[in-house]
Computed example of a mutant assay.
Amino acid sequence: MSALIRTQSAVTLVGGGPVAPEEIAAALSHAPVLVAADGGAGAALEAGHMPLAVIGDFDSLDAGVHAAIPADRLHHVAEQDSTDFHKCLARIEAPLVLAVGFAAGRMDHLLAVFNVMARLPKRRALVIGPEDVCLLAPPRLALDLDPGTPVSLFPMGRVTAESRGLHWPLDGLAFAPDGQSATSNRALGHVMIAPHAPKLLLMLPLTALPPLLDALEDAPGW
């Protein structure tokens, strides 16, 4: 599948779920290229930002919003076998995608987002919610966290991992969606997490976003 957006800058992807203008502005401060997933274009315009591209099946794109966006920025993907998040992430080549407007709405939509993150491990995406951030853990991630910071990991498939600096180490455990998980762990300080496959979601509080973004600059990809 060919990319519609190719950039060396990080991308802010705005979804059609609940999202405040200040959330979009905060994401853009780290990821200055703005792309909207279908109805997320409305939230982008309301926040005062014209998307570089709008990607989706357009079933939730308001007619007025559609008319306000230049035609060459509208990328209609008609097929119904994938979500708008999948349509976008598969067509964006960037070092990082910060996704807002995906984590505060319907639970089935959020589960579908997690599914896509596991299915497209080469597309590094970080989903930002009202209180937490979530990403597919890279092969090795080392970051400094305040002692006591919540660290949760949830498997999207069978996977093992190594860790340092967690209250409950991951070494020697076999994780699976219907078996062992690692939610509600906590950091002792400097943390290293190394999953053996691209199957482990990492969730941290929103306050940990700055050190996480710094750590991702040095983290290898899948």
Results as ranks from 00 to 15, higher is better:
S2G: 08
P205V: 11
A187D: 12
P95S: 09
A182K: 03
L74C: 03
P211F: 08
G40W: 05
L13S: 01
V33Q: 02
T83H: 04
R73V: 05
D146I: 14
V35E: 05
M50G: 01
H30T: 04
R91G: 02
R124C: 03
I69L: 01
L213A: 08
I55V: 07
L202Y: 04
G56E: 08
Q8V: 14
V127G: 00
E46I: 05
N115Q: 11
S2F: 05
A68L: 07
G165M: 11
V11E: 02
M107P: 00
A197W: 14
D62T: 05
G42Q: 02
A94R: 01
A90P: 01
K87E: 10
V159K: 07
L200C: 07
N115P: 00
R164T: 10
D38G: 09
D132I: 10
F114T: 06
S152Q: 12
A125S: 10
D214A: 12
F114R: 01
A3Q: 09
P211D: 07
A44M: 03
D81M: 14
F175C: 10
P169E: 11
A67C: 09
M203Q: 14
V35D: 03
V54I: 08
A137N: 06
D214N: 04
L166S: 14
A215V: 14
E217Y: 00
E23C: 05
V113M: 03
P70Q: 10
H190W: 08
G148V: 10
M192R: 13
S184F: 11
D62C: 05
L209T: 07
T160E: 06
V97A: 04
A53Y: 02
P95I: 11
A161L: 15
G129F: 12
M203W: 09
R119H: 03
A37Y: 04
S9P: 02
L34M: 12
